[in-house]
Amino acid sequence: MKPLTTVDGLVVPLDRSNVDTDAIIPKQYLKSVKRTGFGPNLFDDWRYLDPGEPGMDHSKRRINPDFVLNDPHYWGAEILLARKNFGCGSSREHAVWALTDYGIRVVIAPSFADIFFSNSFKNGLLPIVLDEAVVDRLFAEVSATPGYRLNVDLAAQTVTTPSGEAIPFEVGEFHKHCLLNGLDDIALTLEHADDIRAYEQRRRAEAPWLFR
């Protein structure tokens, strides 16, 4: 996994609550057996006016000019500003892969769905929870300020606005450590292989029907 330390990036606002993972990456693209290549289909149903299928040349499709990602002002955005319960629905990690493949590295929202939240950390995408009032204010600032950028510092746990205001955010120690160092958590877990074996030995005695 690529480490994430700081992101100084353009912000794209997606002003909808309960954005589900079906909207982030529609089902037809889940047929891929790869982890890459989902970026052109991020928010596919909202982004294009014609239906999309895997294998198409998506650059030739009709784009929806009213969708925020198609506004040239937001091209190259690395920070997605979203509303509450972002990433609800299906467990598809493809949703995270579509965001990262598009170039998004941070999502800021008042709340996230649990599975999306944990999938993000496995892929170098930082989900930041901020108070609803703060998120409201950021939405207002983004729409009032062309080229609005935020500076995210994971080590310091701050989001800094163009005016220099540093907004603190919470992140779990373990998630932070893995993200800052780009660590593979399977390797970390396997360092505790002896603990897992000891658990299994104990459990086999208690609940032998689980080991047949």
Binding site: R35, R92, E93, S118, N119, N123, D185, T189, L190
Partner: peptide
């Protein structure tokens, strides 16, 4: 769980 966690369970029988 997501796919990274599927891999994690396959490899370690555990989840964080």
């Amino acid at each position: 769980i997501g796919t990274s966690e599927v891999e994690h369970v396959l490899a370690t029988q555990c989840l964080l």
